[in-house]
């Protein structure tokens, strides 16, 4: 397990994200649209929209503005560039999926809406799983080794601050 709080926090968020992606994957493998009157399905749509709009985008922003810039200053641009490129593909996809989830939570799914949601969901699951794989195998171990205590404390406070400002569960 990771020694510093930044790595641990990001790891915990990865766990929550993958658990959510697995719930989404379980739902979209059905041929029929999920019923939004079913409490579990309604909860999934709510959790999905909330997590993408708050946690995922905050997670991406923190990595890009704080972590990747830090690596760049010590001459390690490659990891940040690669992960930022993946964020770039997932941001608009996440926006679309969150919008579809909110619309469906309010109005339910028709056949076309379910098809669009399933496609966007399948793409999000695949991209997110591969992305988390890379961060778990490369980014978090690097953070664990590279951060001194003062930097770790500063970054942790900065990240926790954004969490508290958002006032949403991680």
């Amino acid at each position: 397990m990771f020694a510093n709080r930044i790595s641990r926090t990001l790891h915990d968020e990865h766990c929550a994200t993958i658990a959510l992606m697995e719930r989404l994957e379980g739902a979209i493998t059905r041929r029929q649209p999920i019923s939004t009157t079913d409490p579990a399905s309604a909860q999934l749509l709510h959790d999905l929209a909330s997590a993408i709009e708050a946690d995922t985008l905050r997670h991406f922003d923190f990595e890009e503005t704080e972590l990747f810039t830090l690596f760049e200053t010590v001459g390690d641009q490659l990891i940040g560039d690669h992960l930022t490129e993946e964020h770039g593909f997932m941001r608009p996809l996440g926006d679309r999926l969150a919008r579809l989830a909110r619309d469906a939570a309010a109005n339910g799914f028709d056949a076309a809406g379910w098809k669009e949601f399933s496609r966007a969901g399948a793409e999000m699951v695949q991209r997110m799983v591969v992305h988390v794989q890379k961060e778990e195998m490369a980014l978090l171990p690097l953070l664990d080794q590279a951060l001194d205590a003062a930097t770790e404390a500063r970054l942790y406070q900065a990240y926790i601050g954004t969490t508290q400002r958002d006032d949403r569960p991680v």
């Binding site: 990891i79 890379k134 980014l139 690097l142 080794q145």
Partner: peptide, 11 residues
Amino acid sequence: MTAAGAFLGSA
């Protein structure tokens, strides 16, 4: 380059 950068770079 760090080991992690090298790891991702190696991909």
